[in-house]
């Protein structure tokens, strides 16, 4: 029922190029910086160089434009609602009027400004998840969240949990698939009836799925304990994160580039 190829976690596109070779910590920091700085931009013109920069990143990483557009699709509704509110509910010079809706010049400007910022924001944000695998990102976040350890935030344990969770997805999905088929063969149907009926029909899938997964968890915990796993102990990695010179150059470049257009009025 569910193809193995649908099991790609996140939007990660395996590939190579500049963005793939950068340290995930660096990518998190520089993209976060870009995402924050564009909120301080005052002019629509400041967005053009940033847009071109992001576009060139997309091109050199060989991410198909189609998937970028596909990623933007879910926010289309949000974009339309946002534009609608800004276009018609901003007081100012009226351009034209339909019933009670007034399109104002100020509203038009504001709408376009905010719309383009939203699109750029989402492009930057998804560029990070397009070029960094969840595991790499988690490693990056682990390092960046080390100061939180002092506040008793269990960073190392969380990373271990993420690794286990990712490892278990194929197993759990397969299990769920089996349960769905088993219930269907007993006459269960999942897409008939009203809202409450359909929601209820999920219960016979979820209950056995949960019980069998918890049993699996017990077994795994025992297996880990007999191998002397100790939660919270600092982990070592086979593939360690390395901060290269190119990372420093990239980070400095992004900070300068981003700040350059801060003052365009």
């Amino acid at each position: 029922m569910i193809g193995k190829d649908s099991l790609v976690i996140g939007q990660y596109f395996p590939g190579n190029g500049l963005l793939y070779s950068l340290d995930p910590r660096n990518k998190i920091l520089s993209f976060l910086f870009l995402m924050i700085i564009i909120f301080f931009y005052k002019s629509l013109f400041s967005f053009i160089p940033i847009f071109l920069l992001v576009l060139s990143f997309i091109i050199i990483s060989k991410i198909p434009i189609k998937s970028i557009l596909k990623g933007l699709k879910p926010i289309l509704m949000l974009l339309i609602i946002t534009l609608f509110f800004h276009f018609f509910f901003t007081p100012g010079e009226t351009i034209f009027k339909i019933f009670f809706l007034k399109l104002t010049k100020e509203g038009l400007n504001k709408g376009i400004f905010i719309g383009s910022r939203l699109i750029i924001l989402i492009m930057i944000s998804s560029l990070l998840t397009f070029t960094t695998s969840p595991l790499e990102l988690t490693k990056g976040l682990e390092f960046l969240s080390l100061p939180l350890e002092k506040l008793k935030f269990p960073s190392t344990e969380i990373i271990m949990m993420i690794t286990i969770a990712l490892r278990f997805i194929p197993v759990l999905v397969e299990e769920a698939d089996r349960i769905i088929v088993a219930q269907v063969s007993r006459g269960a149907s999942f897409d008939e009836g009203n809202l409450i009926k359909r929601a209820k029909s999920l219960i016979p899938i979820l209950v056995p799925l949960f019980v069998s997964s918890f049993r699996r968890a017990e077994e795994l915990a025992i297996a880990m304990e007999v191998r002397c796993f100790q939660p919270g102990k600092k982990r070592t990695y086979m593939k360690r994160l390395t901060w290269k010179n190119i990372d420093t150059i990239f980070l400095i470049f992004i900070i300068i580039f981003g700040s350059l257009f801060l003052f365009i009025k």
Partner: peptide, 17 residues
């Protein structure tokens, strides 16, 4: 370890669902 693995499996379930 038990809590850690249970948490991880719940995360896995959330993802699978």
């Amino acid at each position: 370890t038990k809590s850690l693995v249970r948490g991880a499996i719940i995360a896995g379930l959330y993802l699978s669902l």
